[in-house]
Amino acid sequence: MQKKIMAVVMIAVLALSLAACSSGGGGDKLKVTMVTDVGGVNDQSFNQSAWEGLQKAGKDLGVKVSYQESHQDADFVPNLETALDAGNDLIWGIGYKLGDPILEAAKKNPDTKYAIVDFAYEDTPENVVGVVFKQEQPSFLVGYIAAKMTKTGKVGFVGGMEGDVISAFENGYHAGVEYANKVNGTNVEVIIQYAESFTDAAKGKAIANSMYQQGADIVFHAAGGVGDGVIEAAKEQGKFAIGVDRDQNYMAPDNVITSAMKRVDVGVYNVVKDLKEGKFPGGTTVVYGLEEGAVDIAPTSDKHVPKEILDEVEALKKDIIDGKIEVPFNQETFNDFVNSL
């Protein structure tokens, strides 16, 4: 008896799942979904930001939006399959870790469009678009602020792991300090150290403590979870820290003076808008920066940073958008930048 019931249930499940497959693809509303990185959709970081951008697209552009959460790297591929079966027109991968899974899926399903945040392919298929951000631009701005606000003449940078993205943060920041030195005739020094981790908060704290002991009074981090330790050190020592990716002032309202923000939501929204208007930039990597409003300094900066410095930052933004200042993003361009000052 029990076996029979089991059999019936199994058949019912199979039938349902078949029905689920065949129901995809229909409807005339554009369907867009995103597959998150392991942080999940409420990670208060770039996954959440991406989802906010998608929700805005849903509201403003009348597209149907949804998300698939990943909890470990092994979830990426099945989640992409699910997204495909649901008949989505555009599938987002949020974060560089989804780079390879997205490429695989895109090659297998040339009729579906894919997009990825923080990843640039060397050879992008026609149905894929890579979205990257000029993180060096907001880093330049916070570097300028740091150089103007330091009282000790020393500022710090804590990086996560060496790589293109973090290197852009580092060199942008360093260039911002050098630029401020040149313009204001100061001689602010930058101490740079990498944690070789994105998770070891204790190491972030140790490095920041070491920098404060060496006389730095402002430390900028681009190091994920390691940054929690950096901000904690600032809190304990009564020094300053600069946040990253989003406005981190809430972590230590008295100590985080500004943050170098990356507006993933703006990037996601823009690409969906392009798709809706039939201008999907497939086969390319789009680069978003200050011009598109996709990177910026934190809105709470005015709590700690004096107005005249913020005014100068506004002028700098304009210069960067106009191309008068080209912010370096790696060692080579940094050297050129410093030589041209």
């Binding site: 392991v38 942080g39 994105f198 998770t199 070891d200 908060a201 204790a202 704290k205 994920g224 979870g225 929690d228 330790g229 904690e232 809190k235 972590m251």
Partner: peptide, 16 residues
């Protein structure tokens, strides 16, 4: 000792 002293919040990667 990590979440109340070394730092002051918990995130998924704190204990890794």
């Amino acid at each position: 000792a990590m979440s109340l002293a070394a730092v002051s919040n918990f995130r998924a990667t704190l204990i890794s």
